[in-house]
Design a protein around this nucleic acid. Structure first.
Length: 755
RNA sequence: GGGCGCUUAGCUCAGCGGUUCAGAGCACUGCAUUCACAUUGCAGGGGUCGUAGGUUCGAAUCCUACAGCGCCCACCA
């Protein structure tokens, strides 16, 4: 006997009950799917940060991935969706540091080991919240395979990757100008910056030519200033002049031709620096003369290399002026030093003029502090070959972006990418598998870089395991590098590390790799996707995935970014609480029309709830008709009798093919619209009404039965098509249908055959 | 500075060269309702498709310019 449905659908009780049912069935785990599921289909989830909580972007992405996986599972694939979390080095460390700050502690008070312990504690407490939230939205991940980027196996993958790159000669350690976050106390890669427009100033400073005396006040008053020859440089960061090693002009610049090779006197520091010629200087900008600060500017570093200029380190890693900045400024903070320098220059009448200057200033993407370019000993990954590999994959369409226009963003970045600075000076992350003989490379040592940039006996050992002794001097006082790796270095390995790489015997890797789909947002195409692609080719010789779906960004209704701090965020869990998971899922999918943005409108979630209710009541009606006296039916397509019968069957056919096509093309919004329109307007509004008449009119029981069979058939098939979008309610309804040989809907066969 | 995307009813969006291309949902108006559902049904009002040119027999749909919004990339001091 079939059970009867209550008159209103209650998401709360149904959802937890159904999710439990699925988990108990084991069908989230490909190994427990029926043996008929052979061909694999794999997605690895973009691992959310352990600091994260579900936001609308995650929700959209979860809906997309789950819809894909559920459809594929029903199509008979051996589906695997691997969940997990990312340790998110800087973000998590900052979070725990904030917590400590409330207790008036810094990480340095605790020391490294204690601090890491704190982070692990924090991770245990909060790190899995988002995974539980994903369950609430109905994600059918294989939780038994959940991974964390800091778990032991994963850490092994990371160090293996490092060693392999190193042995290939692609990882090297070098002194270079890097992006340095004073607050976080670490280097950052070029992609970890956020440029912000700022209204700054452009200061024009006079550098007096050598052998010219400084003008005195009286001389200026007597207009003798014209006799004093200067070269005027323009800068937005006057404090860096303390570290200048030269003034550069373009060799073709007529104004300065006769000055090339002469010296000027660097103000305040009072040392002679040469005027040099370099094509990197743009004669049309500012005065056409550039001050060159080798250790505190990217361009200047390059120029200094070409001209073999001396290096003056004037700002240290904590944002204080060093001894090299001179007695007047030593110990000052950068902005204090700027004031001081300007004051001195004014005093010496060396400020030609000050202009307003709007420019883009890089900020730390994690803490928003201004980035200081700083010369520092760091580890870099050579990008030339890897970038080529990554470009080839997309150009040859081995890896496809959906929509295709994202190809360009990806290729453009790779075309002129600089080597990747992969070392970070924070504590939470994968320690570099690097050992130094005798001395460490800790923070204190870095502070004295300008005095001594050598380490230990000079021997650096890169090894997956701690070496016994130094292969060079046999010393046993080996210290592991204090640095950790860029979080993105480890996430770059995600698709294959989660499946067991580098273990060659890994069954999962053999079975499920390469994966089929990666779905993520456009913000991390270069930060993450590009790096996964070259890492995969490099380490597995295969692509990591076939398709990269770049889904829409969810904005607020008035087009602003959803953000907790701005108070513009909408919490998907509150929507689930209010409308149910299916309604939320459907409403989100309904809005995912493939454009690059979704201006999120809650009305669509409400529409989703109404739609669920409609579906529920359609089912109640159909059950009312079919469970009284008929015996359970099979899945055969019923023979239509009336015009209405024919019409609804044909409409269903058309819609199901269309919806299936849309799903295959990852056009979720279109698929949802097609289903919605059919269910509501064709099936409910028209055919259900017609069926009442047909049943009433029927002269024989058999005639009525044809109509009922069609009702049940359409409902059954529609439930299957809807299941990827609204899994809970469809599973619940399906469980009540009077059908023979029923399985769980989650593994029932997809009603549209692929070509 | 370079590149990309968006601009269609009050709101969120489809449509992307040709009788249903002027549409959907929400909102609004009117009527209906013991019969699966008021989380309903039926009917209706509402837009010179950002602006200005151009191509074409024909454009919301293609091209050009401009404007507004958003995003990505970039070491111009």
């Amino acid at each position: 006997m079939q059970k009867e449905l209550p008159s209103a659908y209650d998401p709360k009780t149904t959802e937890s009950k159904i999710y439990e049912l699925w988990e108990k069935s084991g069908f989230f785990n490909p190994d427990k799917l029926p043996k008929t599921h052979k061909k694999t289909f794999t997605i690895t989830i973009p691992p959310p940060n352990v600091t994260g909580e579900l936001h609308m972007g995650h929700a959209l992405n979860a809906v997309i991935q789950d819809a894909i996986i559920r459809r594929k599972r029903m199509q008979g694939y051996k589906t695997l969706w691997i969940p997990g979390t990312d340790h998110a080095g800087i973000a998590t460390q900052n979070k725990v540091e904030q917590k400590l700050k409330k207790e008036n502690l810094s990480r340095f008070d605790l020391g490294r080991d204690k601090f890491i312990e704190e982070v692990w504690k924090w991770k245990e407490q909060y790190g899995n919240i988002i995974l539980h939230q994903l369950k609430q939205i109905g994600a059918s991940c294989d939780w038994s395979r959940a991974r964390f980027t800091m778990d032991d196996g994963y850490a092994n993958s990371v160090s293996e990757a490092f060693v392999k790159y190193y042995n290939k000669g692609w990882l090297y350690r070098a002194l270079r100008v890097v992006n340095w976050c004073i607050r976080c106390g670490t280097s950052l890669s070029d992609l970890e910056l956020e440029y912000k427009g700022e209204n700054g100033k452009l200061w024009h400073i006079r550098y007096k030519l050598e052998n010219q005396h400084l003008p005195k006040k009286t001389e200026i008053q007597n207009s003798k200033i014209s006799e004093v020859r200067y070269i005027i440089v323009a800068t937005t960061r006057p404090e860096t002049m303390l570290g200048d090693a030269a003034v550069a002009v373009n060799p073709k610049d007529e104004r300065y031709k006769d000055l090339i090779g002469k010296n000027v006197v660097l103000p305040i520091q009072n040392r002679n620096i040469p005027i040099i010629a370099d094509y990197a200087v743009d004669p049309s900008f500012g005065t056409g003369a550039v001050k060159v600060t080798p250790l505190h500017d990217f361009n200047d570093w390059e120029i200094a290399q070409r001209h073999n200029l001396p290096q003056y380190k004037i700002i240290n890693e904590r944002g204080r002026m060093t001894k090299g900045a001179g007695a007047v400024c030593e110990g000052l903070k950068i902005n204090e030093c700027r004031e001081k320098v300007l004051e001195e220059l004014a005093k010496q009448n060396l400020l030609e003029k000050t202009e307003d200057f709007a420019h883009q200033v890089p900020h730390c993407y994690r803490c928003d502090s201004i980035i200081e370019p700083l010369a520092n000993l760091q580890w870099f990954l050579k990008m030339d070959q890897l970038a080529k590999t990554a470009m080839r994959a997309v150009k040859k369409r081995e890896v496809k972006f959906v929509p295709k226009r994202w190809d360009e963003i990806y290729i453009d970045w790779l075309k002129n990418v600089r080597d990747w600075c992969v070392s970070r000076q924070i504590w939470w992350g994968h320690r570099l598998p690097v050992w130094f003989c005798g001395k460490s490379d800790g923070f204190q040592e870095r502070m004295d870089l300008d005095e001594d940039i050598k380490v230990g006996c000079g021997q650096i050992i890169v090894s997956g395991e701690k070496p016994r002794n130094c292969p060079s001097c046999k010393g046993t006082n080996l210290k592991q590098s204090e640095d950790v790796l860029d979080t993105w270095f480890s996430s770059a390995l995600w698709p294959f590390a989660t499946l067991g790489w580098p273990d060659k015997k890994s069954k999962d890797l053999k079975t499920f790799y390469p994966t089929q789909v990666l779905s993520t947002d456009r913000g991390i195409i270069n930060l993450w996707v590009a790096r996964m692609i070259f890492s995969s080719y490099e380490f597995t010789g295969q692509k990591p995935f076939d398709n990269v779906i770049i889904h829409a960004t969810v904005l607020t209704k008035d087009g602003r970014r959803m953000s907790k701090s701005l108070g513009t965020g909408i919490d998907p869990l509150q929507l689930i609480d209010k409308y149910g998971a299916d309604a939320t899922r459907f409403g989100i999918a309904y809005q995912a029309m493939g454009g690059q943005d979704i201006r999120f409108a809650e009305e669509h979630i409400m529409a989703g709830k109404k739609f669920c209710n409609k579906l529920w009541n359609i089912s109640r009606f159909v059950l009312l008709q079919t469970t009284k006296d008929e015996s359970p039916m099979t899945n055969r397509i019923p023979k239509p009798k009336s015009q209405s019968d024919k019409k609804i069957l044909s409409q269903f056919n058309k819609m199901s093919k269309l919806a299936d096509k849309y799903l295959e093309q990852y056009q979720f919004g279109h698929a949802a619209h097609a289903l919605y329109d059919f269910v509501w307007h064709d099936f409910a509004d028209v055919y259900l009404e017609e069926s009442k008449k047909q049943i009433a009119r029927a002269e024989t029981k058999k005639q009525a039965e044809i109509t009922k069979t069609i009702l049940l058939y359409i409902l059954t098939q529609t439930l299957k098509l809807l299941h990827p979008f609204t899994p809970f309610i469809t599973e619940e309804i399906y469980s009540t249908l009077p059908i023979k040989d029923k399985k769980l809907l989650i593994v029932e066969s997809w009603p549209v055959k692929s070509k």
